[in-house]
């Protein structure tokens, strides 16, 4: 009878058990559960951000929010960009921080000028964290709104301008 290679079989068995145990240990630890929770946190952050912009956008005159999103954007002086820690659109900054006091955010405006996409910084509260979420809301400006709010958009009377309000939100 051939008795050789007995030890090789044992070695194979041991290796198999070792591999199975390793896979078991990894899968049983937190690896699977974490992404689910993180997803829920991201959803909450995005929801708060988009609700904030939506609520400011639809706010009637007779509420604590005095200027709606379109009026805030219309009042912006287009020539200067924000640089930390000075922000150059205080009316929007105050409304946003009243609505989401525990969340940090940066706001940019994106619009086309002479056929090119321009992105300008408007409100800066710091460097976004790794798990930051971006929410967007569009507003349409006419010269009438811009004139009433005293902004620097320089629109013709028959011109309309679509501006994308981009807000990066994150938690610390």
């Amino acid at each position: 009878m051939n008795d050789k290679a007995q030890l090789h079989t044992m070695e194979g068995l041991l290796a198999a058990i070792l591999m199975t145990m390793t896979v078991l240990m990894i899968t049983q630890s937190t690896a699977i559960v974490t992404p689910q929770n993180e997803l829920a946190i991201d959803v909450q952050l995005e929801q708060i951000g988009s609700d904030t912009l939506k609520v400011i956008d639809i706010a009637p005159q007779t509420s604590i929010i005095r200027n709606n999103l379109t009026e805030c954007v219309a009042s912006w002086d287009t020539t200067t960009e924000a640089s930390y820690p000075t922000n150059n659109l205080e009316i929007l900054d105050n409304s946003i921080s009243n609505l989401m006091p525990e969340i940090l955010y940066n706001v940019n405006f994106a619009y086309t000028r002479n056929g090119n996409l321009t992105v300008k910084k408007v409100i800066i509260h710091g460097q976004p964290a790794d798990n930051a979420v971006v929410v967007r809301h569009y507003v349409t400006l006419t010269n009438e709104t811009v004139k009433t709010m005293g902004g620097g958009w320089n629109l013709a009377d028959d011109e309309i301008k679509v501006v994308e309000v981009r807000m990066t939100t994150w938690k610390v």
Binding site: A40, V43, Q44, Q47, I48, D51, T52, V55, I58, A59, Q61, T62, S63, L99, M100
Partner: peptide
Amino acid sequence: TSKITRIVLVETGTIAD
């Protein structure tokens, strides 16, 4: 527990301006 918060405007009454 699982929790979600939404920001809303609530019609709370009337106002005279």
